[in-house]
Simulated assay, not measured.
Amino acid sequence: MSSDSSSAQPTPAQIRRWRRYLADEIAEGAIYRELAERRTGQERQILLGLAEAEERHEAYWRTKLGEHARHVRPSTRRMFLRWLARHFGSVFVLALAQRAESSSPYEKDADATAQMAADEQVHEEVIRALATAGRARLSGNFRAAVFGANDGLVSNLALVMGIGATGVASGFVLFSGIAGLLAGALSMAAGEYVSVRSQRELLTASRPTQVTLAAAPNLDLDANELVLIYKARGMSDEDAEHRVAERMGLFTCDCNPSFSLHPEARAEELEKEHEELGSAPGAAASSFAFFASGAVIPILPYIFGLSGTGAVVLSLVLVGLALLGTGGVVGLLSGASPLKRGLRQLGIGLGAAAVTYCLGLLFETTAV
């Protein structure tokens, strides 16, 4: 329990802190209930279980606060998260909830119990597990979309900075930027299509077939290679022979579930890998669209007629904001700090632009 005695009067600092904790517990419980409304089955029960745990924490802080527990309002961040849960209930909300659970201050606060700190650690892992399926569904086409947008931002910004630094006319910079947009988008789409299609074909080639069922009736009982199929799938000699005997019709009792499910489990695993890859046309379309949407941002100032230093500065600002946004989304989905991921993307993009700009200065020419 808390190090404070039950009769001790809390300090103003403790009251403020406890009220913040209470507000967060109320909001998190509401978030989990909102998410549960959009789920069914076991996932719904898990979310409701988390909500009940938050209610226990809420009751603890209400007891500690006494009359000070009245009129507690959640933070703006928690209210926004609850709004997202109510209207979307997506993997983004689970990722935000995971991050909220991971940043719990209970472990370092003597006023919280060790059990509550342990609860928060468990809650983070539960949310991480619930978010895994959503992240897997996004990891194919979403990966292509994010990479495409970032490549478009960085590569076209670097191109525009490099060409612009040579001193050529703004119309030439705009033409170069449009050419870079089209060339890069087409290249990204083609590369992503080939990559995903090739990976799916490799997975398909590895998928177990039903040849053991089709061929078994016509095989020689005393001399056949059926056992080699199951050995190749990873079964032990004993399990493989047992499986062959069952396939050949010597008995119908499948007495060893651990190996009887092995081919089917492998097929399900391959199907899951297919899902995570996404479709080749979808990945290609995402790459093209997002590369183009990213690549158009550096040339927006030139499209609207700006030139010189003003166009360069505005281009850098627009691209910087976009890089912060894409990096933040990736950080959010991965459960990491959105700010750190955004700053990392910003540093990479502006670093590449700085290099090409310096190279452009080396080849500076008279503007025409």
Rank of each mutant, 00 (worst) to 15 (best):
A216D: 02
T252W: 05
V227P: 08
A289C: 11
P217I: 02
G282A: 04
A245C: 03
S286E: 01
L261W: 14
G249Q: 04
E271T: 10
R243M: 10
I229T: 15
L300H: 14
R243A: 10
A289T: 07
G234Q: 03
D237G: 05
R233M: 14
S236L: 02
G282L: 02
R266T: 05
A280K: 03
S287T: 01
G278R: 02
V244E: 10
R243I: 07
A284S: 02
S258A: 15
N224T: 07
F288D: 07
S260A: 15
A232P: 05
A295W: 03
D239V: 06
R266W: 09
A283Y: 06
P298T: 05
Y230F: 13
R247V: 11
S258D: 15
P257M: 10
F288K: 08
E241A: 11
L228E: 12
A265I: 13
L221P: 05
S279D: 00
A292H: 10
A232S: 10
L219Y: 09
P298Q: 06
E269W: 07
I229Q: 12
D220L: 06
A245D: 04
L270D: 00
L228C: 07
P263D: 08
A280P: 00
P217E: 03
L300T: 13
A232K: 12
F251R: 12
C253H: 12
R243Q: 10
A292P: 10
D222E: 15
A283F: 04
S260M: 13
I299P: 09
G282P: 02
G234F: 02
C253V: 10
P298L: 07
S279V: 04
H262M: 14
E275S: 00
F251D: 00
N256W: 08
S293A: 12
G234H: 05
G278D: 01
A232T: 06
R243L: 04
